[in-house]
Amino acid sequence: MEMITSLLAGILFATGVYNLLQKQLLRIVIGTALISHGAHLFILTMGKLKRGNPPIIVEGVENYVDPLPQALILTSIVISFGVTSFLLVLAYRAAKTNDTDNMDELRGNENE
């Protein structure tokens, strides 16, 4: 299963990168969201999947899944949420101010 989740993470990365390379702002934000999903899945996979119970201590149960990656992912989810929402509003404002959401039209000045 780890192989398949790795592959899934790879596909998430690939689609994320492809979206990132598009011209439209919204797609770029979608791309970052996909990449962060991929990364989360990646972290979980690297910590081995499904080797025991959920990490909530119950008397008599010896075998639990690794709790550390879960804690890391939880932190990461929150941060990526913050960043994504910021990006989204930024994209919204940029599109509003410049009347375009085309990255090619949002270039800096030639002589900067």
Partner: peptide
């Protein structure tokens, strides 16, 4: 091709490091 290669690379990295 950049996207596919990047995805493939991440997969390989994942499997190898696993």
């Amino acid at each position: 091709s950049i996207a596919i290669l990047f995805g493939a690379m991440m997969t390989i990295v994942g499997i190898s490091s696993y």
